[in-house]
Design a protein around this nucleic acid. Structure first.
Lengths: 234, 234
DNA sequence: TGCATTTTGTTTGTCGACAACATGAATGCA
DNA sequence: TGCATTCATGTTGTCGACAAACAAAATGCA
């Protein structure tokens, strides 16, 4: 009964402020609520969260370390732009990581991993059913991240997570313009991937992962080249 | 003639403190001057560099983001341990990145890249000649990082750099015990790799990169299993 | 002595304030 | 008017200080 009197005082726990700001900004950036290029003001954030600039600053340093924001010395700091010119390198990396993580999952997964993967698989299916674009993006990323975790290679997993994050921003653009029917196909592909992993069929998992990735890449590329003739080697 | 009177005052430029501390700590960690597990004291560093704890803290946050130090909430922060149990995942990632970056270099390099690569190649040869272990490690990493840069995929490059960093710590252990003759072989392999890249022979570059990587991995594994019989599936 | 509690000491996380830097507006000069 | 310089404004980087959290020593009690 010592703390009941603290009304209207946020009474944050000691180390939780940075994580709160970090998580919020991160999600806002990845969901394009904060547009690429938009400024990030420390003072403003400090006021909004009713805390000093110091923990805000730490959160920003972390985000900068992940490349989600860019900070010009002594000048403003802003949300990183999506590098459309280097989109092909992104796709290259994405496809390879899809392959490798799926392959490793088939090789190294443990029984308890499958239930986690299955869970996200159903979440994704539910999001498709509900036509909830944001949920689709998030659960799809979670699904593949879970597969990567089952592969048990932290180096691949961390790169893959980074790619999925970046992909979340790009896909957000996609779903903003297209509200289509294609995700149903992905549900089926996800099921196939799970089956291959479960059967420990490494080569098949590899193949399916690659095909699935290229499927997605092709869809996104079609978005950026809608008339099909002006492909500038994306 | 405005600043000549400031004797004994470091007179650091505004944003340079963090980078200085960051670079120094980073190199000390990677060269094992700071042993894994050893504590990192903010106050001590602040005194040593004659600056406030704030920029020290920022440098530490950055290092933690790269996994070079680990920080327990409200408690001490220490240099990250080398995870010998997961060494095989490290090798897996390293071999794949050697392959991919070398392959991409053969595919995407520009003429000006070659001179940079050649430069590090000669630096490495010189280090071997001088039997300077630290220089060998550093120039070898620089050589392969330059190849990765020529491949022009920042996602692969950044993961590869991280792996090379981690490898620097492991190799540092290696060279601490073995001062051998094997590096000469690597000089020749480097030359072959350069030739394959120059000829834009993608498949050969891939093959050589893989072989080179497996060469190194085998050497390091032999270090950790000297008697050859007690291999615990590293 | 053995165990629980208090106290001490140390390190971290946060704060408010200030100075350096950059940008753009205002001013001065030709 | 055109250009350079000065000034004003806002933002960032740094500082010193304080308070919370934890670990270990010190104390109290049986």
């Amino acid at each position: 009964m010592a703390e009941t009197a603290s009304l209207s005082v946020p009474e944050r726990k000691r180390g939780s402020g940075v994580k709160m700001v970090y998580d919020l900004l991160r999600n806002q950036i990845l969901d394009l609520e904060l547009a690429p290029g938009s400024p990030v003001d420390e003072v403003q954030l400090a006021e909004r969260f009713k805390m000093s600039r110091t923990p805000i600053r730490e959160a920003l340093v972390r985000l900068a370390g992940e490349g989600l924001i860019e900070t010009l010395p002594n000048r403003s700091t802003m949300v990183s732009n999506i590098d459309f010119l280097n989109l092909s390198t992104f796709f290259d990396a994405l496809v390879l990581m899809y392959r490798v993580t799926t392959r490793l999952a088939a090789q190294n997964y443990r029984p308890e991993d499958l239930s986690v993967i299955q869970g996200f698989h159903q979440d994704y299916a539910a999001a498709v059913e509900a036509r909830d674009a944001l949920a689709m993006i998030a659960t799809n990323a979670a699904f593949h991240a879970a597969i990567a975790e089952a592969g048990r290679n932290p180096y691949f997993t961390s790169l893959f997570r980074r790619l999925l994050d970046e992909g979340r921003r790009i896909l957000r653009l996609y779903y903003r313009s297209y509200e289509e029917q294609f995700p149903q196909r992905f549900v089926e592909e996800h099921a196939e991937i799970i089956a291959a992993i479960k059967a420990r069929d490494v080569e098949k998992a590899d193949r399916l992962g690659k095909a699935h990735a290229e499927q997605i890449v092709a869809q996104v590329q079609k978005l950026f080249n809608p008339n099909g003739g002006l492909d500038i080697s994306l």
